[in-house]
Nucleic acid binder design. Structure first.
Lengths: 202, 202
DNA sequence: TTGCGTTTTAAACATAGTTTAAAATAATGC
DNA sequence: GCATTATTTTAAACTATGTTTAAAACGCAA
């Protein structure tokens, strides 16, 4: 019963598992073929190339994970609450799926010029109600006048970068996996506080 | 006169240029050999492997660039001034050498387990007077009690990550190179302010 | 059952990093 | 100054990668 999968699905699933486990570059097509129990050439038959297969997998991963985040940004929550929820949900997401980060990093490093063409990227865009909200609240004098792009970049940086430098932090501080996880958990309070503070009038 | 370079130097220089220009993965050994005007096998003769050559180049790049940063952290400046200088010098460094970031990112993504073995990493470590300073000032009640690691990670994130997601930001906001450079320049004021605010007592 | 489009296969191809073993060159000892 | 030894350079081959090819196997409608 577990084996009604189409060939395309078998390839997709095997590749996803391997890519997440050992990284794209360190996963060979022959390895995928073996794990999926298919002929080598079928990978190129169904997906035109390994890069293409990667794109497909990445798109699916991003879509699956960013839906909730975009929903928060586009909701009608107040700015403070919106930031709080976004940070916590995002950090939880990366905590549960730490490989997503190195996955994303590998794209940023890969294919420089082609990055904007990636289908998946488009799903990273919210409808910008968040940016509008920051501008509006600034005009009303509820918060400091703030460049939404700067604020959004601050937010992303404080959320995602620690995962990217995980191994460096662990090595420098002698953290175990558990200690690093704890370190990250603390950030679910620290980061929103910092971001909201930066919006406060002085 | 320009050609008294030893073979090892010729390889090193050609590879450095190519790695920075097109990335490590997209630079072939044969290409390096051609540019350096040497035989293909000499690359393996002088450096044991391409990965090793990369390590050597990376070490040199990191050393050359981080000296100034470590000096600031280990200086006897006050905390505020130290943060200000560190952020500005770091951002300037990455602005002038934007390829350093994608270079570093590629390492974080590469060789996961071997990362701590990298010679270059050690030069990222200051003698931790900075951490001590944060703890001391916290005890004295001059600033909020703060986990130095958290603060350091905040700082690094706000400085470096925007460079890593440069293409995403440019695409999303329709920035030109100049506009992105300007965006980064603004962060030289914004980021220290944010960091210093986070230390203030409330 | 025949014919035709789809799927699968084994084999070959091009390019990558690396190794080898011989040749060329430089250095050393007598 | 020559013979020997060590170092450097070379061309070629080796292995592994992603990809392509052309034939075979399969599925199904006419």
């Amino acid at each position: 019963m577990t084996k009604n999968k189409t060939t395309e699905q078998k390839i997709f699933d095997a590749a996803t598992e391997l890519f997440l486990e050992k990284g794209v570059d360190r996963t060979s097509v022959r390895e995928i073929a073996t794990k999926a129990d298919i002929n080598l050439a079928l990978m190129n038959y169904y997906f035109r190339s390994k890069e293409n297969l990667f794109d497909a997998i990445f798109s699916q991963l991003v879509k699956k994970n960013t839906r909730k985040l975009i929903k928060i940004l586009d909701s009608d929550l107040g700015l403070e609450e919106k930031v709080r929820q976004y940070v916590v949900v995002y950090i939880d997401m990366l905590s549960e799926n730490p490989l997503l980060v190195s996955f994303v990093m590998s794209i940023l490093h890969r294919s420089r010029e082609r990055i904007t063409e990636m289908k998946a990227i488009s799903s990273l865009y919210s409808t910008d109600t968040f940016a509008q909200q920051i501008i509006e609240e600034g005009k009303k004098g509820n918060i400091r006048r703030t460049d939404p792009t700067q604020f959004y970049v601050d937010m992303l940086s404080l959320i995602a970068f620690p995962f990217a430098i995980k191994l460096l932090v662990m090595d420098k501080r002698g953290f175990t996996e558990e200690e690093f996880a704890e370190f990250i958990q603390e950030r679910k309070e620290r980061v929103p506080e910092m971001l909201i503070d930066s919006l406060k009038l002085r």
